[in-house]
Simulated scan of single mutants.
Amino acid sequence: MSDTRNMNITAAIGSAVVAVVLVGMKLWALGETRALSVAASLTDSALDVMTAFAGIAAILYAARPADEDHAFGHSSAEDLAALAQSLFILVSSGIIAWAAVTRMLAGEAMQLENQGRGIVVMVASIVLSLGLVIWQRRVARRTGNRVIMANSLNHLGDVVPAIGAIGSLWASAAFDLPQIDNIVAIGAALLLAMGAVNIFKGAWDALMDRAADPQTIAGIEEIVRGFPGVHGFHDLKTRTAGSMTFVNLHIELDGQQTLDEAHAIGAALRRAILKEFPETDVLIHKDPVGVEPHPDDPSRR
């Protein structure tokens, strides 16, 4: 298994472990305080547990090599897992917001208790979440894995509700304002929904074969443009699936050289692209310089 796969799996396992710890801490804090804002943060962490284990399964499945039925590999499983995560988060944010709005419309305000204990738990959860997010962001930058990025967004999303819960508990203790708990819960739900929409969009774009990001495309173009023996290129096409980027490219070579020489140039170019962008699958087609496309060729419309 490659180093990037090992990094992804380790980061996913770390996410699951931290999520389980946070659920235990926040469940205790909810029992102590009865705060809906703490319940919002607990719900988010509980969903993180489910999505983290789903992410581990997706990464392991995506790491399977290509086979007869999946010639391009299984990396799209990562996008499906990220899509599922976003839907789980949207549902949870809706439930939290509905409960808070219902309380407000009914004029209900839960009298909070043991606010100091709840604040200590929320502060500890913020420290754990931020530590995990920093590590996962480093992994995601190196591997491009959407599941890890989605997990890091989930845990980063834990921080804001936790801060809101701290403010709610403090206001309740200092100024006897229990109604603020409902307001904080609604704000936390909105932030969760916004993050879920971003995750959904990224996963959906990948499943719909969206092109790679502009920086990756520009980097590939720069490598090809200055490569020895390549006189030009065209029809550069990219698509993403999970953490993989698939690249199709036509290069223009001297038509008078031997097939062995043309193959050597194409193979060397492929190695150069893979060195700069390791998580790619590169397919290069070779054309003689100045060749005109055949009018019946559908690939050159």
Rank of each mutant, 00 (worst) to 15 (best):
G157D: 02
T240R: 15
G167C: 13
L128K: 00
I186L: 08
D235V: 12
S129K: 04
S172E: 05
R141F: 03
G131K: 01
A188P: 05
V147A: 12
A212D: 02
A162K: 00
D181E: 10
I148Y: 00
G202C: 03
S168A: 15
P161S: 09
G242L: 02
F200L: 13
R138D: 08
V133N: 01
N198K: 10
I148N: 00
I134A: 15
M244W: 05
N151H: 15
I223L: 11
T143I: 03
W170L: 12
P178N: 07
L177G: 07
S172Q: 08
I223S: 02
F227E: 03
D158K: 01
T238I: 04
P214V: 06
H155E: 06
T240C: 10
E221I: 09
E221V: 11
G226K: 12
R142W: 04
H155Q: 14
E222M: 11
T216L: 08
A185L: 06
A241N: 03
F200R: 08
R138P: 02
V139G: 01
G219Q: 03
L177E: 09
T216A: 01
G144A: 09
R142F: 02
Q215S: 13
T143E: 00
F227D: 03
D181Y: 05
D181R: 01
A188W: 00
G157C: 05
L207F: 09
E222Q: 15
I220D: 00
L192R: 02
A165F: 03
D235I: 10
L192E: 07
G229R: 09
P178L: 03
A188S: 15
